[in-house]
């Protein structure tokens, strides 16, 4: 497309079928301890594939 560039992202709708294994890290166990933000968590399955 001439005026729109789409960045490669995970399709959240597809993850309804593929997600939910629960092996990912608990948000607060890493570095914040005072605020929740799930966006910066890694998908354990995705990181295994890399």
């Amino acid at each position: 497309m001439k005026r729109i560039k789409t960045i490669d992202t995970r399709d959240l709708k597809k993850s309804v079928q593929t997600g939910g294994c629960g092996e990912c890290q608990t948000s607060c166990q890493s570095a914040c301890k005072t605020s929740c933000g799930v966006a910066n968590q890694q998908c354990e399955k995705c990181s295994e594939k890399k």
Binding site: R10, S15, C24, S27, C28, C36, V38, Q41, Q42, C46
Partner: peptide, 25 residues
């Protein structure tokens, strides 16, 4: 830490909806 965002390998929708898991996980 707060700028770590993996657009292709980030959390699935279940994680995004359920959050940090405090009190449960």
């Amino acid at each position: 830490y707060h700028y770590m965002i993996d657009l292709t390998g980030g959390p699935c929708i279940y994680k995004r909806v359920s959050g940090c898991g405090s009190g449960t996980e």
